[in-house]
């Protein structure tokens, strides 16, 4: 853990209600890096991501995002931190009554002082970045799952966030679309220097994109491993972690 880290957590405990599902979580991430959270279904990956992003309160421990202690931040300070992050939810969570363009414009209208024309320009650019220039005026119900994911990423990027959280971005996508999405994530990081935290089951995608990976072990209720994802395939890793990555890779 170093002073320049954009995201850290120390002895973090997460769960639902009062029930702890993971604790003793310690990790840190430097700006511009990509962290993947992996583990079996139901182990608390999305819950951890929400806690790291400040959407949910952890049950214990400390989380620091962009130098701000999330436990201590309330009200406006918390809003300011959330404004500097972007989220892609599992189901994309696009506003169904708005077109894709309006979905992207919505946070801009709320937070930016730029004139209407420039907001429109920005929204069109963000949609073009994710390859949806031709679908700007469509409603979310009129597009495919892969397009909805990309539109969700465009909305997450609307305010040029420092950190983007992606919950299963390639789930349910065909290998080609999944590959394109990985490419997009890498290009966004390269171009904007954005730090990315993603939850994923897709080992090939994690190997392609992530700099670091944390494996959550539901049996021990804490991190099973933390490091570069390629190292998880090598000998010397905990057997469960090695098996998870090797099995998924062959799948």
């Amino acid at each position: 853990m170093s002073a320049g880290d954009i995201l850290t957590c120390a002895d973090l405990a997460i769960g639902h209600g009062d029930r702890v599902i993971m604790d003793r979580l310690n990790l840190s991430l430097a700006p511009g890096k990509i962290l993947a959270i992996v583990g079996p279904s139901g182990c608390g990956k999305s819950t951890l991501m929400r806690a790291l992003g400040g959407l949910d309160e952890p049950l214990g421990g400390k989380t620091t995002l962009m130098g701000v202690d999330l436990n201590a931040s309330r009200g406006q300070q918390r809003q300011d931190i959330l404004r500097r992050t972007g989220f892609l939810f599992q189901g994309s969570a696009l506003f169904s009554s708005l077109t894709l363009r309006e979905n992207i414009e919505m946070p801009m209208r709320e937070f930016l002082k730029a004139p209407h024309r420039e907001i429109r320009q920005l929204a069109e650019y963000k949609l073009a970045l994710v390859g949806l220039a031709d679908a700007m005026d469509k409603l979310p119900s009129e597009i495919s799952g892969g397009m909805a994911k990309r539109a969700g990423i465009a909305r997450a990027m609307a305010l040029d966030p420092s950190v983007i959280f992606l919950d299963e971005p390639s789930a349910g996508l065909d290998p080609m679309s999944s590959g394109r999405l990985d490419e997009l994530i890498l290009r966004l990081r390269e171009a904007f220097g954005t730090t990315i935290v993603l939850v994923s089951h897709e080992v090939p995608s994690i190997l392609r994109t992530a700099d670091f990976c944390v494996y959550l072990d539901p049996d021990t209720g804490t991190m099973g491993a933390y490091g570069p994802p390629k190292s998880f395939l090598q000998a010397g890793q905990p057997p469960k972690v090695h098996a998870f990555f090797s099995q998924a890779r062959f799948d």
Binding site: E118, E124, Y125, K126, D160
Partner: peptide, 9 residues
């Protein structure tokens, strides 16, 4: 991103 958006537009 306002600059690339401006160039793009």
């Amino acid at each position: 991103s306002s600059l690339p958006a401006w160039l793009y537009a």
